[in-house]
Design a protein around this nucleic acid. Structure first.
Length: 890
DNA sequence: AACTGTGGCTTGCTTG
DNA sequence: CAAGCAAGCCACAGTT
């Protein structure tokens, strides 16, 4: 099988490099050799094309990925051909080589036996002095660039250079360096000049983007231009395999003893196909006909796999759900076992991923598992990372219900089941006008990271990657994380909570009760704004200049640089500004076409993911530019400005009844005074306060982070209350929501009184059902995540762990961290059991559930003067308490 | 020796 | 990332 579509645009080097044959005697010669090979990086030029529709242009490619080829000993780039919808592999023609930096001068490096030995072995190609700026000392320094033959000489092996001498920039993946050195931007478009070098091709921005650009700085304009470029509708195919495994045995890629018997395929250009290996020889053509997709039957497993490869090779992008850990490795190992060795020409194992040789493989499982994607891009719409749960949440479709094992299903059912998986996988990349593919591309543009990495790595890696580039642009030597940590810390506060590293946000004590007409104002993206406005970055906090030491962060001994703009601060500023000032506005602008509006919405969302994570990563020790004093400075300013805002509100006669981190709840304010407050904060602190929402009424409990309210749009907004939490039983949660639903209609006291009777009725009814054991088991399930292996709970044994251990014992299995345990409160010795082991409702501990019902409802009822009598099984109104009337005296 | 009450601590989930 | 909540575990002290 040949891959004729696989165009390799690289040119053969003119001659076999002399450099690699002769031993290198002195740096003098190396200098000369390096002169033409490394020093001259190509300058990538730009070309502007006016208003050309994206599909029409020939020879235009989007840079989507890169890697290092150890067989060619060269880096390569992968481009998506937007006309012919295939991937072009472009091998380096610039004689670029891997490198890292040392702070030792050339002479002392040359006297090191290690270096001499590696030079003689041709592993080190050359040493060169360069001038860089050290961001930590803010001084120009001389560093030695060590240029090597292949990336493993720098790092990745036990005897690599970085394990033996102190190096800088030695943990940047080689292809990342390569992209940066060539000045390339992932997700942007290129064409190839006559020399075969990629040149930037810039689409003419839309009218509204051009208009927005007028007011911006050059740097911001570049960002805008890059982000707003159209995203091609990638041609892609989703794949899903079924393995015929005996009951109770999970197929393992490391031991592929069971046959692959179904391969389902579903593509963006309408291919719908299920390939079946007739392993029992009993499939009739009649029985498998289906009007939704084609079916092909094979008498041989290898033929099945080969056919699948033939089809998917027509697609530049392969989409899977768990393809990195299951489908593709299984195809690999199973093929090898069956003697189909050529499979390695198409599917390759990477370090943490599986690659396809003709294109890009995206494993959606990893992408949707990404915490930032889950919480910020999709607002936590799905909770379990499974195809079924994600598809249900995002496209309102689930997997097929099955009896549990293939033996109990007809072949038609199995085929349909398999196809549904492939179909859902594809649809997850298609809904909302290809939202997911666009999101991935935009994040690649923001982070300048390859599509493969964007879909597999976390937000701190995305940010780190862009930070590298920002350092390079300023000729900064990228600091090692240990250097940043060794900087002065000078911390003065003990965190409030044990186990935390620094002090966080301020939460104001709520004023309990029912409050009418509450306006919530909040600081528009407070932490990013603080990062920007107060110049916070790892190098500017506690900077080396004496003259900055008086620029103190309020209530700390930390100071901030007044001479140089910090990199993180600058990045936060740009991302925040273009999000707020451009994309958020345009995504709501009625004068913009619907398509564009939607696209700007995606960009806005991607920027939000990054901006929300920025502060967090500074305080996370897994981040290369982690620096606690910087994270602490952010929260210190945050506490400072919210205190000042409350102070000012008080002076103006506004009543603040609650606030959390960046928000203030103001009761029935005079709008002119509110306006004054906002103006004052803007003037004084360069931060924007804005009206977030208005509650017709807000019900605050005495607990922080626990309240609900009826918004001006007529929606009941619930925060923190137990009834909302995922680990309350559905039965209790439903009662909770039923009560809140009653409250939705309330506008005055009479209605409140009427509703109160209804509420008590609801609760009594619920109690009766519990006592009479009329509630089905599933309604009483409490779902709790197992966050460790059961044997790793050493300090205490929580209830869900007890239940989990029973499950493990009963089924002889080992539950994985992240598994959701479904427990039920029972009347046995330790009060819990996994629902799987409970036969009937009789085993339920009704008393426990009534207690749980009461404590859940108490949070809302205490404020409404409905008393729950603990112990007793009845609810009563505490008539002695003042009635609701007090809330209406205004 | 069995029971009850208390407080520190762990765990999981949510808010911002 | 920290703050904050509820539930439950667990050791300990003080009854009965």
């Amino acid at each position: 099988m040949t891959l004729d579509r696989f165009i390799n645009k690289s040119r053969k080097p003119k001659m076999d490099r002399d450099l690699e044959k002769k031993p290198i005697a002195s740096t003098q010669i190396q200098e000369e050799l390096l002169e033409d090979s490394i020093r001259e990086q190509p300058k990538i030029e730009e070309k502007r094309i006016d208003e050309i529709p994206i599909e029409a242009e020939d020879g235009i490619y989007m840079l989507v990925s890169a890697n290092y080829s150890s067989s060619d000993n060269k880096p390569y780039l992968l481009f998506y051909d937007i006309k012919n919808h295939r991937i072009i592999k472009w091998m380096d023609v610039t004689d670029h080589h891997p490198y890292a930096y040392s702070k030792e001068p050339i002479e002392s490096l040359e006297s090191l036996p290690l270096i001499v030995e590696r030079m003689n072995k041709q592993q080190i190609l050359g040493l060169r002095t360069e001038e860089k700026i050290d961001p930590l000392s803010d001084k120009k320094i001389q560093v030695t660039k060590i240029i090597v033959r292949d990336p493993l000489i720098i790092g990745g092996r036990a005897d690599s250079l970085r394990e033996q001498i102190k190096l800088w920039e030695a943990d940047i993946k080689y292809y990342v360096n390569y992209i940066m050195d060539l000045g390339l931007e992932v997700g942007s478009y290129y064409f190839f000049d006559p020399q075969g070098l990629p040149r930037r091709y810039i689409f003419q921005p839309s009218k509204e983007i051009r208009k927005a650009m007028e007011k911006l700085s050059d740097e911001e304009r570049k960002w805008l231009e890059r982000l707003a470029e159209p995203v091609v509708d990638f041609k892609r195919i989703a794949l899903d395999i079924e393995v015929y495994n005996p009951r109770g045995v999970m197929p393992q890629p490391d031991n592929p003893e069971h046959p692959i018997f179904i391969i389902s395929l579903c593509s963006s250009d309408g291919l719908k196909k299920v390939l079946v290996y007739d392993l029992r020889g009993d499939i009739s053509n009649e029985g498998i006909k289906n009007d939704k997709f084609d079916v092909e039957v094979f008498k041989n497993e290898i033929e099945l796999i080969k056919r699948a490869l033939d089809i998917i090779r027509e697609y530049p992008i392969l989409i899977t759900f768990n393809g990195d850990t299951f489908d593709l490795p299984y195809i690999l190992t199973r093929s090898a076992k069956l003697g189909f060795k050529e499979v390695r020409d198409f599917i390759e194992r990477g370090r943490n991923e599986i690659r396809i040789t003709w294109g890009i493989h995206i494993d959606l499982y990893k992408f949707f598992k990404n915490v930032s994607i889950k919480t910020y891009a999709f607002s936590g719409a799905y909770d379990i990372i499974s195809l079924d749960s994600i598809a249900r949440a995002l496209i309102n479709k689930g997997k097929m219900e099955t009896p549990g094992h293939f033996d109990e299903m007809s072949i038609q059912e199995i085929i349909e089941y398999g196809f549904t998986d492939a179909e859902l996988t594809l649809e997850l990349t298609q809904f909302n006008n290809n939202l997911v593919m666009r999101l991935i591309t935009i994040i690649a543009r923001i982070s300048n990271m390859t599509i493969d990495d964007v879909t597999r790595l976390s937000v701190s890696n995305w940010i780190r990657n862009r930070m590298f580039y920002l350092h390079r642009n300023k000729n900064y030597l990228i600091p090692r994380s240990d250097e940043i940590r060794e900087k002065k810390w000078g911390r003065h506060f003990q965190p409030v909570t044990k186990g935390k590293k620094y002090v966080g946000a301020l939460v104001i004590d709520p004023k309990p009760g029912v409050h009418f007409n509450v306006i919530v104002v909040d600081f528009a993206s407070l932490y990013p704004s603080i990062l920007k406005e107060y110049n916070i970055s790892y190098e500017t906090v506690n900077c080396p200049h004496d003259e900055c030491k008086t620029n103190l962060v309020p209530e700390t001994t930390t100071w901030i640089c007044t001479k140089k703009k910090g990199l993180i601060s600058e990045f936060a500023g740009i991302i925040r500004d273009i999000r707020v000032n451009v994309f958020k506005k345009l995504s709501k602008d009625k004068n913009v076409s619907r398509d564009n509006r939607e696209f700007y919405g995606v960009i806005q969302r991607a920027l939000k993911v990054i901006i929300n994570a920025l502060y967090g990563v500074i305080g996370a020790d897994t981040f290369q530019f982690y620096y606690l004093p910087a994270a602490e400075a952010v929260t210190a300013y945050g506490r400072y400005v919210i205190k000042k805002a409350i102070e000012k509100a008080g002076e103006l006669g506004l009543e603040v009844i609650y606030g959390d981190t960046d928000s203030l709840f103001i009761k029935d304010p005079d709008m002119d005074k509110l306006e004054l407050l906002i103006e004052d904060i803007k003037k004084e602190y360069r931060l924007q306060l804005e009206i977030d929402k208005i509650y017709k009424y807000a019900v605050l409990s005495s607990r922080k982070k626990n309240y609900f309210g009826l918004t001006s749009e007529g929606i009941i907004d619930i925060k923190g209350l137990m009834g909302k939490k995922s680990n309350t039983p559905p039965f209790i949660r439903n009662v909770f929501y039923e009560i809140l639903d009653k409250l939705r209609t309330v506008e005055d006291i009479e209605q409140f009184k009427m509703v109160r009777k209804d509420i008590i009725e609801i609760i009594r009814d619920a109690e009766t059902k519990l006592i009479n054991k009329e509630v089905p088991l599933e309604e009483l399930v409490i779902t709790i995540t197992l966050s460790k292996y059961t044997d790793q709970y050493t300090k205490t044994t929580p209830q869900h762990v007890k239940a989990a251990r029973k499950l493990e014992k009963a089924f002889g299995i080992r539950l994985q961290p992240g598994h959701m345990i479904k427990i039920v409160k029972t009347r046995n010795n330790d009060g819990v059991a996994p629902i799987e082991l409970v036969r009937s409702v009789d085993q339920i501990d009704s008393k426990k559930y009534i207690e749980l019902l009461h404590s859940t409802l108490e949070q809302i009822l205490e404020v409404l003067d409905i008393k729950v009598n603990k112990g007793k099984k009845v609810v009563m109104i505490d008539e002695r308490k003042v009635s609701l009337d007090k809330f209406f005296k205004f």
